[in-house]
């Protein structure tokens, strides 16, 4: 119970502290702090319209956060969510274009499968490189992001380019019939359900299965895991696959629910923001859900900040960076505060 309280209170305090630093930053750049903060709240959670906007952005964040969170449980710091998302989206688009005309349910399922498999394979490669060649997973996954973006540009400006798209080169569309619908009368697309279900499912796998326990054991002490006979390499690669698969699904959702075709909107930074979500949620798939909504809200407010205060769109990037740094620094506080300690447990 104390542990639980601590893991809620410290990130919350860190978030408040980040907002304070951010306020100083805003004041320094000559804006009214209260008005800017109010606008962030307004743009994120102020109305039903902003809520829809926020949730649409939270859906891919939940999935890309899993790409960092799951491997992190086994001790690997992977920042390749952006690349896995691009690859997943691209493969889903390819599938959608080539199957266009078949029954929509079949096309959408195939798109989801190809997104999941390609994204999974993309990050599984990182895990395999780490295990078999001891290649640093952080650097290799980041390099793969750039390679994925190069492939994306190569395809949308060449083979797949729809000549009708002039301003923003894009691939051919997947067809309106194959788009994921929205939930009821809202503008929230079905991707949100995917995100929630996958987060819940993976939380169950982590907390309630032998597989999940093995992953945590590898992350806790890899030598002990090896000695107790776990197939460490295989488990690490599977974990990476699952993480990548989630990010690949995020790419597929962005294509099938938002853009309808592949273009540079695929690498809009969801992968990088997902890293932050995973760190704030301390790699807990269930905690990822509220954190993703919070971060989705911050991203959603970016447009309003630009319009109302003429602040650059990088303002929310600065806020995210500050939050990240403060959250990491707050890691030093865990277990040190007396009021979270059980009574009678002297330090």
């Amino acid at each position: 119970m104390h542990n639980f309280m601590e893991s809620i209170a410290i990130p919350t305090a860190a978030l408040v502290f980040s907002l304070l630093i951010f306020s100083g930053f805003v004041a320094f750049s000559g804006n009214n702090v209260l008005e800017v903060l109010a606008a962030i709240y307004q743009g994120a959670f102020g109305s039903w319209f902003s809520w829809q906007n926020t949730l649409v952005r939270a859906a891919p964040l939940m999935l890309t956060a899993l790409c960092t969170a799951l491997p992190a449980r086994s001790g690997l710091i992977i920042i390749g969510g952006e690349g896995a998302m691009v690859v997943g989206g691209l493969c889903a688009t390819l599938t959608g274009i080539s199957l266009n005309g078949l029954p929509p349910f079949f096309v959408i399922s195939s798109m989801a499968c190809s997104g999941v498999l390609s994204g999974g394979a993309w990050i599984a490669a990182v895990g395999a490189l780490k295990h078999y060649r001891n290649v640093n997973e952080t650097i290799s996954s980041l390099l793969l992001n750039y390679i994925a973006i190069a492939i994306l540009n190569f395809l949308i400006l060449g083979l797949l380019r729809d000549p009708a798209t002039l301003n923003k080169p894009s691939s051919f569309p997947i067809g309106d019939a194959n788009m994921l619908g929205t939930i009821g009368t809202t503008s929230i697309h079905a991707g949100l359900i995917f995100g929630l279900v996958v987060c819940g499912l993976l939380w169950f796998v982590i907390r309630r299965t032998t597989f999940g326990f093995s992953i945590d054991m590898i992350g806790g002490n890899i030598r002990a895991a090896q000695i107790s006979g776990l197939a460490v390499g295989k488990l690490i690669i599977i974990t990476c696959f699952l993480g990548g698969a989630a990010a690949g699904l995020a790419g597929m959702i962005e294509i099938a629910a938002v853009h309808g075709r592949a273009n540079t909107s695929l690498n809009a930074g969801y992968g990088y923001a997902g890293i932050l979500v995973a760190f704030i949620a301390r790699y807990n798939p269930l905690a990822i859900i509220p954190v993703a909504i919070l971060l989705g809200g911050i991203r959603a407010s970016s447009g309003l900040l630009q319009r109302s205060f003429d602040l650059p769109d990088a303002t929310t990037l600065v806020l995210q960076g500050i939050i990240f740094i403060v959250i990491l620094a707050s890691g030093a506080v865990y277990g040190r505060l007396n009021w979270f300690k059980p009574k009678g447990d002297s330090p």
Binding site: T138, I275, D313, A314, F324
Partner: peptide
């Protein structure tokens, strides 16, 4: 973790520079 701090500094530096 110095790796995690590196990622955070990368984001912060980039965001600040763009801003």
């Amino acid at each position: 973790n110095d790796i995690a701090v590196g990622i955070a500094m990368m984001m912060f530096g980039t965001g600040l520079a763009f801003y």
